[in-house]
Amino acid sequence: MKRRAMPLPIMPSLRRAALALAGALALTACDSQPTLESAPLHGAAIGGPFALTGQDGAVHRWADYDGQWRIVYFGYTYCPDICPTDVQRLSQGLMQFEDANPQRGAGVQPIFITIDPARDTPDTLAQFASNFHPRLVALTGSEDEIAQTAKAFGVYFSRGREGEGGAYDMNHSNIAYLFAPDGAPVAILPTSEGADAIAAELDRWVR
């Protein structure tokens, strides 16, 4: 007759170790999304109020987007390469994030601000924005308004030399900022690394 093996009793020390391990794993899972206090741009003096004109001809204020995560990029529609490439990657990255996280993605507002208001009228911006994310807001204003807004967001720009027919390029920093719902700066989105990296960075911070 075979004897059934009796289960060995779990020693208290092993039980405590198992519980500690389970607690550590649970804590790790909870901490997979870092706190905003640990964000790269936490506490930076970037951003601020503005009142600019959208591609719809209406006035758009920074405060209009309170409660939403905001992606902000400064560029210009006549840019031959960098601006459309960056905006395309931002749009694709956001759409990937939305597909994987519909509720969180719906709370992210992409914003494009021109640094070339002389040429970027609302109609020009409307045509430009239609090529990218369906919720992209494109903004323009007077030269003074754009200069003040760019300064508040830590963006450099200058007008290049004129070529034939009066054509010119704009020199500018191409930075895509992510802001929290309260308007605080969070991180710089890695446009140079492509849409996948942008989607991953949004997933890292957007609640």
Rank of each mutant, 00 (worst) to 15 (best):
P34G: 12
A200N: 11
A197H: 02
S192K: 15
Y65R: 00
S13D: 13
A184I: 09
A176M: 02
A176I: 02
F112G: 06
W69E: 01
I115Q: 07
A129G: 00
G57K: 00
I111L: 15
E143W: 04
V206G: 02
T191A: 13
L136M: 08
R3Y: 12
G163T: 10
R204K: 15
L8G: 13
V137Q: 04
L19H: 02
D64C: 02
G47Y: 01
A63E: 13
Y156G: 10
P122Q: 01
I10F: 09
D66G: 14
P134G: 06
A152Y: 03
F50P: 09
P134Q: 06
G154D: 12
W62E: 15
A20Q: 08
S192F: 14
P49E: 15
D123M: 14
I10P: 07
L27M: 05
S142R: 00
R4T: 08
F50M: 12
W205N: 01
L36H: 06
G165C: 01
A58N: 05
Y73A: 12
R104T: 05
V206P: 08
L14A: 15
M1N: 11
T191E: 10
R3M: 13
D56K: 09
G48V: 13
A5P: 09
M1R: 07
H172W: 10
M170L: 13
L139H: 02
Y168F: 09
F132K: 00
R135M: 10
G47H: 05
I113M: 13
K151R: 03
E201L: 07
G141Y: 13
E193L: 12
G54Q: 01
F157D: 12
P122V: 04
S142W: 00
G160H: 01
S13E: 15
Q68G: 06
G48C: 10
D56R: 11
W62R: 14
N101C: 10
P185S: 08
D116A: 10
H42C: 12
I111V: 15
G48P: 06
P102T: 14
P12V: 12
Y177M: 11
W62A: 14
T85Q: 08
T53G: 05
F128W: 00
Q92H: 08
G54V: 15
A51D: 11
S91R: 05
A63G: 02
S142K: 00
L139A: 09
D81Y: 06
A118L: 13
A200T: 15
D116K: 06
W62P: 04
M95I: 06
C83I: 08
A152K: 08
T53W: 07
G57A: 03
A197C: 09
L41P: 01
W205V: 03
T191W: 08
K2F: 14
H60E: 10
Y156L: 13
P190F: 01
V186L: 02
G23C: 12
Y76V: 05
R3A: 12
I10N: 07
G160D: 06
A138H: 04
P80Q: 00
W62T: 05
D99G: 15
P117L: 05
I146A: 10
M95R: 03
V206T: 02
D123N: 04
C79I: 06
